[in-house]
Simulated assay, not measured.
Amino acid sequence: MAKSPENKSKDVNVRRKTGVVRLSFKSESTFLYMRSNQGSILNNAMYRMAELFKLTSTSYDKVVFNQIKEWFDTEIIEVATKEIESLRNQLTELQNEVDTGLEFINVKNPNMTLDFDVIHKSHGEIFNIVSKIDFLMDDIETLLLTGIDDDDDIEGASRNQMNLILNNISKKIFTVTKPGKRNGGPFNTMYFVQQLKLGVFSLYPEKNIEEQSIEKTDITNAKSTEESLIKEFDKGQSDIVVNQNELAEAV
């Protein structure tokens, strides 16, 4: 969990060996996000992901571990890394507009430090994403101190993009692991992994829904084609009867 160092709650019982890291933020936007309710949700998502990695790290569960790792790398880390490019583009736009001549010899930041619990190195991979965003947002905020015009509200757009990137991480993790809440209760890591092994749960629910939709469409199309063929056949039979009647009358 994230907490301000000066307001740390007393240690509670922990289920796993837990390290505590203290992160210092350079950007006010990133700091305020990470200490907000949205930041707590992201932190909970990171913890759930870490529990899955810890549970499947044995050789017995290596196949499931690799499946989870591949999903995490491609759907979380790679996607977020690409999305960060849009933030970088917004920074470039601002840099191109700087013409005030102001050059700061120093930039003073308030104390923006938070502590986080860590149970697996996957925490660090997401913290790395947060850090990249933090550096970009810091540069954007600093450039705005020069007094350049922000008619297009690039700062607001940057904050929105930051929120989108980090919220998407939480959303994806909770969407995929949602079935792990047995009987609507708390998330059960072991239950989720067991059902993942059996193929009951999937790391790609959207893909399954899409495939089911395609399959349903194929069945509908096949049924429609079959009905069309039957109609054509019936029409053909009617044409034969009509032709036979015409032939009889002619004879």
Rank of each mutant, 00 (worst) to 15 (best):
N163G: 06
N163R: 12
N163L: 10
N163I: 08
L164T: 15
L164I: 12
L164Q: 14
I165T: 07
I165N: 08
I165V: 06
L166R: 00
L166G: 00
L166Y: 00
N167C: 03
N167Q: 07
N167V: 02
N167R: 11
N167H: 05
N168P: 08
I169M: 13
I169L: 11
I169C: 09
I169T: 07
I169S: 11
S170G: 05
K171L: 14
K171M: 14
K171D: 15
K171T: 14
K172L: 13
K172M: 14
K172W: 11
K172A: 14
I173Q: 13
I173P: 11
I173R: 13
I173H: 13
I173T: 12
T175P: 07
T175Q: 14
T175H: 12
T175A: 11
T175E: 11
T175I: 06
T175D: 14
T177M: 08
T177F: 12
T177H: 09
K178T: 10
K178M: 15
K178D: 15
K178A: 14
P179C: 07
P179E: 10
P179D: 07
P179H: 10
G180H: 02
G180F: 01
K181P: 06
K181W: 08
K181I: 08
R182H: 10
N183D: 03
N183Y: 01
N183Q: 02
G184T: 09
G184H: 02
G184F: 04
G184Y: 04
G185N: 13
G185D: 07
G185F: 06
F187R: 03
F187Q: 04
N188I: 02
N188P: 04
M190E: 14
M190L: 13
M190F: 12
Y191L: 01
Y191V: 01
Y191N: 00
Y191Q: 02
F192R: 04
F192Q: 06
F192D: 05
F192Y: 13
F192S: 05
V193Q: 06
Q194E: 15
Q194V: 11
Q195K: 14
Q195S: 11
Q195L: 13
L196P: 04
L196K: 01
L196C: 00
K197F: 05
K197D: 00
K197V: 02
K197W: 03
L198F: 11
L198I: 10
L198Y: 11
G199L: 09
G199H: 12
G199V: 12
G199A: 09
G199W: 12
G199C: 12
G199R: 11
V200D: 07
V200Y: 06
V200W: 01
V200G: 04
F201S: 07
F201T: 08
F201C: 07
F201Q: 10
S202E: 09
S202C: 09
L203Y: 02
L203A: 00
L203S: 00
L203H: 01
L203D: 01
